[in-house]
């Protein structure tokens, strides 16, 4: 474990709970893409199947449980409890256009052609594009609530911190995972546009609105 990965994981945890609290407190999921949340739930479920078969540490197992439970809870709040506030008219990204190609790629490019490893690879590839429905929804509505932009900032920062973690681990542990690094770069690059808007607008107390 290193500081980059720890802060990254905590940033990830913060993002998930900021979103969960926003929906729970405001009793509304306006401006939030349910499709992205479904993809994140899929990412965690396919990635953490080794939860019971492969004990790494208490921290690792605990975080896996928290990530799965909180993301499933978010999907539940969006599609069941506060379904009436779900903005399906703007959440129109065709996620099958993400899941199918990513599924195919996971079969073709992986470290080990075993079910668990292919699912882990699928999860890594899917996570890199899972935010697209959310970014697409913001581009359609033209703006995002400030709390939603904080959620996105924390979520985007987590994988950027993981990139630093991989640099650290490469030099100090000789650890390198090309699949995770490439997917992590794609994932972080997708946030660049948002990071620019967040730093130039939200940091100065303005609302995040995309140029019309």
């Amino acid at each position: 474990m290193n500081i980059f990965r720890l802060v990254g994981d905590l940033s990830h945890l913060l993002a998930i709970f900021v979103l969960l609290l926003k929906i729970w407190k405001s009793r509304s999921c306006a401006g939030v893409s349910g499709k992205s949340q479904i993809l994140f739930a899929l990412v965690f479920i396919t990635r953490y199947l080794d939860l019971f078969t492969n004990f790494i540490s208490v921290y690792n197992s605990l975080m896996k449980v928290i990530f799965i439970a909180s993301t499933v809870a978010t999907v539940y709040l969006m599609y069941i409890k506060f379904k009436a506030t779900y903005d399906s008219n703007h959440d129109t990204f065709r996620i099958e256009f993400l899941v199918v190609p990513v599924g195919g790629l996971a079969f073709l490019v992986n470290h080990d052609f075993t079910p668990l490893e292919i699912l882990w690879t699928f999860s890594i590839y899917l996570e890199s594009v899972a935010i697209l429905p959310q970014l697409f929804m913001i581009s359609k509505t033209g703006e995002a609530e400030t709390i939603t932009s904080h959620y996105l900032f924390a979520l985007g920062s987590y994988r950027a911190l993981y990139l630093l973690n991989w640099i650290y681990r490469y030099y100090f542990e000789g650890y390198f995972d090309l699949i995770a690094v490439v997917a992590g770069c794609v994932q972080t690059i997708l946030y660049c546009d948002f990071f620019y808007l967040y730093i130039t607008k939200v940091m100065w107390g303005k609302k995040l609105s995309l140029p019309a």
Binding site: R5, D9, H12, D50, N54, I56, N60, M63, K64, F67, H111, D112, L116, E117, W120, Y162, N165, Y175, F176, D177, A180
Partner: peptide, 10 residues
């Protein structure tokens, strides 16, 4: 790459 205990990152 896989180390003995599978993937150790979240």
């Amino acid at each position: 790459q896989e180390n003995a205990q599978g993937h150790d990152e979240l």
